[in-house]
């Protein structure tokens, strides 16, 4: 609405400010042609990078929570990695892996592994004393305590960490995909820039917003609310 009004007020038809109808038109026709394929390629790439981040982050998080030595050695490093915007890894990634899928995967991984690691570590360290004592009074061993009490009790924090990690991974992926012509959502944007197609740029941006809202609010949002309700944590 605002957009349409602004468009009319500015007299319309500026090449750098497309009308909402032109953008929607491009989005619909693009979805019929190559947008879905690009989106699929991006999401597949994301799931590789993010999947790897989940595995590495969980393992690192457990190590940091359980071993003082690991915490002392790796704790500050992980914190540093988490603070560094993932785009800063691009130069290193490109020099190491070249302009390739690997470079993008690397950036996605570095962007999201930190938040997942921290979420797992904090979740495991902040188990309420009562639950640990319940495990002890029933005579649970170290492994039973870890798998049946500490890990389940860390689940709500883990999901919040995944949600944060996902949004970092998604941002890193798009930044990586805009580096060169590649099949993917970021590639579509680069292509539109090269051809100065404003409606297409805005259409792809809308697509990105749509995916972000879908995954962030709907997928992770619903999961987070349900888990928090069951775990008895106020929203």
């Amino acid at each position: 609405m605002l957009w349409a009004t602004a468009y009319e007020l500015l007299g319309g038809d500026s090449p750098t400010f497309p009308s909402p109808w032109a953008v929607l038109n491009d989005l619909v026709s693009g979805l019929r042609e190559d947008y879905l394929g690009a989106l699929g390629a991006s999401l597949l790439r994301l799931s590789y990078g993010f999947g790897l981040a989940m595995v590495m982050g969980s393992a690192l998080g457990v190590a940091l929570a359980l071993s003082r030595t690991a915490e002392w050695l790796l704790g500050p490093l992980v914190l540093g990695v988490q603070c560094l915007p993932s785009i800063c890894w691009l130069p290193v990634a490109i020099l190491t892996f070249g302009l390739s899928e690997k470079a993008i995967l690397f950036v996605v991984l570095m962007g999201s592994v930190g938040s997942i690691t921290m979420a797992v570590r904090d979740g495991l360290k902040q188990v309420p004393t009562t639950w640990l004592r319940v495990a002890d009074t029933f005579g649970a061993g170290r492994l039973q305590r870890l798998f049946q009490v500490q890990i389940p009790s860390a689940v709500p924090g883990f999901i919040t960490g995944l949600k944060q990690g996902w949004s970092f991974a998604w941002r890193s992926l798009l930044a990586g995909e805009m580096l060169y012509r590649i099949v993917g959502v970021g590639g579509l944007l680069t292509e539109a820039r090269d051809l100065a197609e404003y409606p297409k740029m805005f259409a792809v941006m809308l697509l990105i917003v749509g995916i972000s809202v879908l995954v962030d609010q709907i997928l992770f949002g619903v999961l987070e609310r349900r888990v928090r309700a069951r775990w008895g944590i106020a929203a």
Partner: peptide, 15 residues
């Protein structure tokens, strides 16, 4: 488990 403790905050596992 020979001296089992029951806590004020029940300590049931919510999951």
């Amino acid at each position: 488990p020979d001296r089992l403790v029951i806590f004020q905050e029940h300590g049931l596992f919510p999951w």
